[in-house]
Design a protein around this nucleic acid. Sequence first.
DNA 1: GTGCCTATGTCATCAATTTGTCATGTAACT
DNA 2: AGTTACATGACAAATTGATGACATAGGCAC
Lengths: 231, 231
Amino acid sequence: MATSSKHILIVEDDASIARLIDIHLQREGYQTTLCDDGLDAQKLLKDNHYDALVLDRMIPGKRGLDVLRWLRGQEKTSLLPVLMVTALTMTDERIRGLNEGADDYLGKPFEPNELVARVAALLRRSVSKVTESFDSHCIQLCEESFEVRIEGELLSLRPLEFKLLQVLMNKPSRVFSREQLLDLVWGIDSFVEERTVDATVKRLRKDLAAFGQGECVQTVRGMGYRFQEKA
Amino acid sequence: MATSSKHILIVEDDASIARLIDIHLQREGYQTTLCDDGLDAQKLLKDNHYDALVLDRMIPGKRGLDVLRWLRGQEKTSLLPVLMVTALTMTDERIRGLNEGADDYLGKPFEPNELVARVAALLRRSVSKVTESFDSHCIQLCEESFEVRIEGELLSLRPLEFKLLQVLMNKPSRVFSREQLLDLVWGIDSFVEERTVDATVKRLRKDLAAFGQGECVQTVRGMGYRFQEKA
DNA sequence: GTGCCTATGTCATCAATTTGTCATGTAACT
DNA sequence: AGTTACATGACAAATTGATGACATAGGCAC
């Protein structure tokens, strides 16, 4: 996985501070969008995808905390990493922010470098924050603990096999071409032969077969592979 | 307000500021003791009882944070409410202070009234201070006393090992990448190699192994580490 | 201050596992 | 049967983690 350009929404009404944040985040290679109003922020969040949000506590239209509470309630943004920026120095306020669901907190005045570091940290953490777990009829895959169970029995997969199963189980019965699998499992910028997918599928099947579920990963001749519970 | 006479220790080397603090706290009915040096502070804390501590960050003899760390390690003072006073405005310094165990934070220059209010708040809260402790089946980790027990037996961990165990036990069975652990244990602004995590894990395991629980910290190849009781 | 001691970061090395590739076998489709 | 696509097993190469040694820094006692 390469350093794809993460998109960050900055909600800040003080133009000079907004610019300061903007410049530093852009310098780090992030894509940024500025916004100076709470209601606009909601619209943007509804219509676009962002990887993180830098949110000022005091903004017109709505208070920052309101926006925060709102977006936590939305399916789409409930897990969005949020860095709250505030001029308030009171500890209680800071703690309240975190309780309300901010992922991190930064008081003004702040070091731009620290802001950048915190955003980076949020993004890093957020990767595994999306911790769904996929269940099929008898296979459970838990992203948080990197565990796969078949009828309760824990089985150990290699990292690549795990990722592969993860991708396939994410859309049961959908067929993925080898090319797609290379992108999704190996990463866009890998220099790996297509045949490698075959080898990994084979290994995955073998491990699943040890628990009677080797048939779950099916070949679709000329197309690719898919995950499907045996009937 | 200040009903029973609470005793507050003030550690501050700037005589004028010390006097300022002293006067205002006394006016509220608190009993105060002044001290302008870190080492003296330690002695005083060892020999006397105080209900709260106002601590300057920059004091001779020892840095404020050192005193703080020390007193948190002492049974007697591990819960003492501490208000840190500092001229530093840098946010990360502020946060570091809180991480180190300060209960509240006040930047210079400050309003005497605010200081009084904060001290009062500390005393109010100090009774019901929320400190979690994580228990697994046979390991107890108490954040309050910085103690770890295995089946009642106290074992002594180094600071980093403690933090690491703390983070891992906070989410049992969840896998943390080295990167995440660096963020959570070492801090987002540390310049430490990822391999350092390995070394610390090894040391933690060794200490746990002395009590038969070396297996609790598990390696998830290609992913990171996790805490999980042995089955 | 001096010096000891502990905690910690880094590195080199070793061992084990994982993974990519290839050569060959096998099944499917025409 | 011929052709294509996939499966399989073997092997080499690359990753990855464990471990022990070592340097250093910072604390603590004297």
